[in-house]
Amino acid sequence: MDETPPRLEIRNLRRCYDGRVVVDDVSLRVMPGQVTCLLGPSGCGKSTTLRMIAGVEMQDAGEIWVDGNLVCDTVTRVPPERRHIGLMFQDFALFPHLRVGENVAFGLEGDKAQKAARIEKLLNRVGMGRYVDAYPHELSGGEQQRVALARALAPRPRIMLMDEPFSGLDNRLRDGIRDETLDILREQDTAVLLVTHEPEEAMRMADEIALMRDGRIVQQGAPYNIYNAPADRDSVAFFSDINVIRGTVQGALVETPFGQFLAPGAMEGQAVEIVIRPQHIKIDFDRNGRGPHPTITDGAAARGIVQRARFMGSESLVEFRMDHDGSILKATVPNVFLPARGKPLWLMIRRDRCFIFPVGGRQRA
């Protein structure tokens, strides 16, 4: 039996502006009912990629396929309105002079009765049925978002492209509306490609994340894998604060104040960085300043002096100036922990939670 083709597939997309490469050899696949997030900092090429897929901008190289059919390369181009692709943006883009029902009907085909039935069904599904005769300015931001979703779904798109669609909403509304939107899209078996610069949003929403930087996809996979097996130091730092301990490989080992670390694959004499997130710095409360006693899991302890402690709501963030080189390390501790400035404490690090990267290179396990 033939394998089901991806609902959306882009192959080696490239786009340049005035000789500057904005999107560089980008490829990805999105299956029906799957949510993929293009995640990356502002200016990395995410929105340009979406515009090329939608057909409002032409690529300089590469191909776009929908359900196994070529819709665009540098010779063939199916117009945007025939690609069966829906669009949702941050500003909702509702027509202010049209009522809610008229906004949803815009672009719908069929007779009057068919359109009315489709509008009623969609507005009821998004909880906006009673607002069919309201104007957009009479609605809250969350209500406008629901109308924009209904309008995007009305033509039954196979693919939904979403460019930061929830960033204009209050935090208290965002999670609920975001979850409702994705539930509806999955019910419709729609392939979703969503652009965001917020790692937490991508982790919450995506079945798969494509991490972009400087116009390229640097890593792609399930959120768990992207977070726990990052491609490089910048990938770790994009998802959280990091601590960096530097060293040099000698005999496949890196000597640090926290003990020795294996650096498989790194060359003898190569400079490396040991990267660890603040939540994996362990404060050794049982040591009481008696000095380091190495363990297999956590290595040796190193002493730091508290510089600052802040309560962040569900955890406390404590900054230490380390005795061995004066560097600053950050640790997070669950609940309230606010030691006084100047207090010495012994720190250990979770070796199984560290990432070791050759300077200027990719991860080494």
Results as ranks from 00 to 15, higher is better:
Val66Arg: 12
Gly360His: 07
Gly107Tyr: 10
Ala309Gly: 08
Leu173Phe: 02
Leu28Val: 07
Glu315Trp: 10
Pro358Gly: 06
Pro80Gln: 09
Asn12Ser: 14
Ala202Tyr: 09
Gly313Gln: 08
Glu164Ser: 01
Ala331Asn: 08
Glu255Val: 01
Thr248His: 11
Val75Trp: 05
Asp325His: 06
Ile349Thr: 04
Ala150Tyr: 09
Pro278Trp: 12
Met160Cys: 02
Ala300Lys: 02
Phe239Asn: 13
Leu253Trp: 14
Gln34Lys: 02
Ile349Lys: 04
Ala93Phe: 03
Glu120Arg: 13
Val192Pro: 04
Arg362Met: 11
Ala263His: 12
Met52Phe: 04
Glu102Pro: 05
Gly176Ala: 03
Arg15Lys: 15
Thr295Glu: 15
Gly221Phe: 08
Gly291Ala: 07
Asp179Ala: 12
Glu187Tyr: 02
Asp325Glu: 07
Leu329Ile: 14
Gly33Val: 06
Glu109Cys: 05
Glu3Thr: 07
Ala263Thr: 11
Leu262Gln: 13
Ile226Thr: 01
Leu139Cys: 13
Ala210Gln: 10
Ser316Ile: 06
Ile10Thr: 00
Ser27Trp: 15
Thr196Pro: 03
Ala93Ser: 09
Ser240Tyr: 12
Phe337Glu: 00
Tyr224Gln: 13
Pro334Gly: 04
Asp183Asn: 06
Ile245Pro: 00
Phe89Val: 11
Leu108Met: 09
Asn103Phe: 01
Arg321Trp: 00
Asn69Tyr: 10
Val126Asn: 14
Arg178Lys: 12
Asp163Leu: 11
Val147Lys: 07
Ala229Gly: 02
Ile242Arg: 07
Glu102Asn: 06
Cys16Ile: 02
Arg125Ala: 15
Cys44Arg: 03
Tyr227Val: 07
Cys16Glu: 15
Ile356Gly: 00
Arg14Gly: 10
Thr48Glu: 03
Asp91Ala: 08
Asp207Val: 00
Gly342Tyr: 10
Gly86Trp: 06
Met52His: 05
Arg156Glu: 11
Glu143His: 12
Leu169Tyr: 13
Phe355Thr: 02
Ala202Asp: 10
Gln260Met: 13
Val254Ile: 14
Pro339Glu: 08
Thr295Arg: 15
Arg178Asp: 01
Thr248Cys: 10
His280Met: 01
His293Ile: 14
Leu122Phe: 04
Asp189Trp: 01
Leu70Ile: 00
Phe258Val: 00
Ser240Ala: 15
Leu39Lys: 05
Ser316Cys: 09
Ala206Phe: 05
Leu345Gln: 01
Met205Asp: 12
Arg158Thr: 12
Tyr131Met: 15
Gln307Asp: 06
Ala301Val: 04
Asn103Gln: 09
Arg350Gln: 12
Arg364Leu: 11
Leu108Glu: 03
Glu164Trp: 03
Arg321Phe: 01
Cys44Val: 04
Gly86Thr: 03
Gly269Arg: 08
Phe357Lys: 00
Met31Gly: 05
Ala116Lys: 15
Arg82Phe: 09
Asp232Gly: 14
Gln307Pro: 00
Glu198Asp: 15
Gly33Ala: 10
